[in-house]
Design a protein around this nucleic acid. Structure first.
Length: 110
DNA sequence: TGATTGACACCCC
DNA sequence: CGGGGTGCCAATC
């Protein structure tokens, strides 16, 4: 029961700047578990209960809202992203490469 | 206690 | 270059 891993994921996701997004792989890699990308997504599922964690800012490596299906609303995830300035079309984040927030780069020192 | 799944990612064909 | 299959780590049934 390594909840500690989940907590680390929450910490990183919670630090994602507004209007920015990150991917499971980036977070997983930042935690030192590049092969645990799936576990990060799993942590997100558990984070849905956490209203303190902007899980909607976490997408797959290509910027696709793969997990929008888990949100209570139909397109709530997209709504939230667009509300923050993130353009989303067809469940695909536009300009994802420039709004992506890589903790490995942003938090590489801290 | 054991097996399967899962909001992904990478390798191989 | 594109598509399909396997692998990883932890949680849940």
């Amino acid at each position: 029961m390594e909840k500690d891993f989940f907590l680390r994921v929450y910490e990183v996701v919670a630090q994602v700047p507004c209007g920015r997004v990150t991917s499971y792989g980036l977070v997983a890699r930042y935690l030192g578990a590049p092969r645990s990308s799936r576990v990060v997504g799993y942590a997100m599922t558990a984070a849905v209960d956490r209203d303190d964690i902007p899980t909607h800012r976490v997408v797959n490596r290509i910027g696709v809202l793969t997990g929008k299906h888990h949100f209570p609303g139909t397109n709530l995830m997209q709504q939230l992203l667009e509300s923050e300035g993130v353009k989303v079309v067809n469940d695909q984040i536009q300009e994802f490469d420039q709004i992506v927030w890589d903790p490995t780069i942003e938090l590489k020192n801290t």
